[in-house]
Design a binder for these strands. Structure first.
Lengths: 119, 119
DNA sequence: AAAGTAACTTGCACTATACAAGCTATTATT
DNA sequence: AATAATAGCTTGTATAGTGCAAGTTACTTT
């Protein structure tokens, strides 16, 4: 099975977990998805999260998440053009994964709390 | 809040997802957990998985997972001493996270399948 | 005695991440 | 009119993580 560019979409194996981790297996991607699920939309809103993501990493991850079809860019103004980042259904559908992670994290890191959705 | 060595257990923030990703946010840790959940126990069994993890990475991750309290080593023979790796409850409790990831992966990478539990 | 096996470790090249600074186009302030 | 501020980046450099190959130790099997 190949994508439109002819390269296999099964980068490491035919396991759904391995394929998912090819896109999400790092310290930042799922935190960005978390922010977007919580209602954040703009670059500076994500930058303001307490984990202090470096700006080059955020720009890189947004590009990769867009290429992976989890996120789309939407201009909210021209002159100068500025973008909001919106989850696609594919991205939204990660909500149960994040919820399971939250449950586990709260059980084993007592004292942690999820931020409230901000709108 | 600090652990027994006095360093904060909240490495990046007080978010349960961020804390979880400090331990699991890479391309390999969750795949090792997957193997152990499927019933694999020994170094070579994990090495035999189709993703072809490099041996130095596997050794490193098993050490880190043990340090994080997700896995324990158990000798299954002496002379020479050989170990099996067993999930703790903390590790077992990641099952719902993996199940959610499998569901997502199967939906968006059609053609993927999870390996059967091998015992 | 030689080869094989399990569980690693070591060395080196390559890639990813972190931190700091700089850039571009525009709006707001003095 | 000049200066500062803001959003959304890019670039450069240093450190950390990953991948591949080979080597090590302590046995067991042929």
């Amino acid at each position: 099975m190949t994508d439109e560019l002819g390269k296999s979409i099964f980068e490491r194996s035919h396991c759904p977990i391995a394929c998912a981790l090819d896109y999400l297996g790092d310290k930042w991607s799922l935190l960005i998805i978390r922010d977007l699920l919580l209602g954040k939309k703009r670059y500076q809103e994500i930058m303001a999260s307490p984990e202090r993501i470096a700006t080059n990493i955020l720009a890189d991850r947004l590009k990769k998440l867009e290429a992976a079809g989890l996120v789309i860019q939407q201009a909210y103004q021209q002159k100068p053009v500025r973008y909001e980042y919106i989850l696609t259904k594919k991205g939204e559908d990660l909500r149960p994964v994040l919820e399971a992670l939250v449950k586990w994290g709260k059980a084993y890191f007592p004292g942690t709390t999820v931020f409230k959705s901000h709108e």
